Each structure stands twice: as C-alpha cells, then as structure tokens.
Simulated assay, not measured.
Amino acid sequence: MITIYHNPRCGKSREGLSLLEKSGKEFEIIQYLKEVPTAEELKSILKLLGISPIELVRQKEEIWVQNFKGKTFSDEEIIKIMIENPILIERPIVINGKTATIGRPPEKILEIL
C-alpha cells in the first residue's frame, strides 16, 4: 500500500497527491497535522528515507527559526520537536512498501511508484 503524508495547505503536497491520483494506484492519505506520527512512526519513516531527523525538519519554518535554530539537539530531541510541532515535518512524504521519498520536487514520487 502506498501512503502519502500530506498537508492540504502545501502546494508541493497537493502536487504530489495529484500525481498519486493520476497513477491509478491505491493509496492512503495521512494528514499528518491532524494525525501526528508517533516517535516510532517517524523513526520508521526516517529509516526508509535513509536520512537523519534534522534532514526531515523544515528549517526555514518560523517555529524552527524562532525557537530552535542554532541550537544543538539529539536525534531523539528532534523527533520530539517534530511531534510537538508537526508543521516542521518536510512534505509530502510518500511511502511505497520498503521505499520512501520526500516529494520535493513532486516528480520524485514517480520514482517509487
């Protein structure tokens, strides 16, 4: 099953969702601002993406700049920050089985379909 972690207010996320709809494949939408991933879910996503927690953070987001920029955090702390402030999670994230990608640009999603 394909899963998209989606924010309907984000243009790139909407473009990614559109690509999935056009693919004709079945997929699940998780609006991660409403259904915030758990620490275990985020760790699983990070493992599939092959990146560290800080690489999943939207570091230009106002919340990050005002509260966290320039400070040092452990991976566990960064995961906790993303759970407490899910707007900081990069989007869209698409998972297809054992592969995942961040849809920036959205065309990257096509590589894992």
Rank of each mutant, 00 (worst) to 15 (best):
M1N: 02
I2E: 00
T3M: 11
Y5C: 10
N7Q: 09
G11W: 00
G11M: 06
E15F: 10
G16S: 11
G16W: 02
L17T: 08
L19Q: 04
L20M: 05
L20Y: 10
G24L: 13
G24W: 09
K25H: 10
E28L: 12
E28A: 11
I29L: 07
I30A: 11
Q31P: 00
L33G: 00
E35S: 15
V36R: 12
V36W: 04
V36S: 01
P37M: 09
T38K: 03
A39N: 12
E41I: 09
L42F: 08
K43L: 08
S44L: 01
I45H: 02
L46N: 05
L48Y: 07
L48R: 08
P53W: 00
I54W: 02
I54G: 03
L56N: 09
R58W: 10
Q59E: 11
Q66F: 04
N67T: 14
T72M: 00
T72I: 15
D75C: 08
E76L: 04
E77F: 06
I78G: 12
I78V: 15
I79G: 06
I81K: 04
I83S: 13
E84S: 12
N85M: 11
P86V: 14
I87V: 14
V94W: 03
T99P: 00
T101C: 14
T101W: 04
I102Q: 10
I102N: 01
G103Q: 06
G103C: 03
E107C: 05
I109S: 00
E111G: 05
